[in-house]
């Protein structure tokens, strides 16, 4: 039997996880629009399916240490964060995109 406090904790985690999947679903849909890639993103329970051109990716929660699992052509790949998830998705649906990396300038922002 799950103690009441434990139950509440699990419930909270489940709710958080569900919310995050929903947010990722929304983010993937917004990403296709931002990248000007034609496709669709559908959610079924805890699984998200993204289809663009010939490619279909399935996104679901991953087992630790991976937070997300992406299934592409029958093969599962783990990614550790939403940032990694977006990187993998874009590599598949928009292979010509040239990425840039955040660079922190050495100069200070505000003059003294």
């Amino acid at each position: 039997m799950i103690p009441k406090s434990g139950y509440r904790f699990s419930e909270k985690i489940m709710r958080q996880q569900t919310d995050t999947v929903g947010l990722v679903h929304r983010l993937l849909a917004a990403s296709l629009a931002a990248w000007q890639v034609t496709g669709r993103v559908e959610r079924e329970a805890e699984r998200i399916t993204l289809t663009a051109g010939e490619q279909t990716l399935k996104v679901a929660r991953g087992a630790p240490p991976f937070r997300w699992t992406v299934t592409l052509a029958g093969r599962d790949r783990g990614v550790t964060s939403i940032a990694g998830l977006l990187r993998m998705v874009r590599r598949v649906v928009d292979p010509d995109h040239r990425t840039s990396r955040l660079r922190i300038a050495p100069s200070r922002l505000v003059p003294p």
Binding site: Q16, D19, T20, L23, R26, L27, A30, S31, A34
Partner: peptide, 22 residues
Amino acid sequence: RDLPREFAQALLDAIEAEVRET
């Protein structure tokens, strides 16, 4: 340029949720 508000908003929402969850 060509950056929809929805993308920036959804990105911040999702990342913030993931960090809070973690």
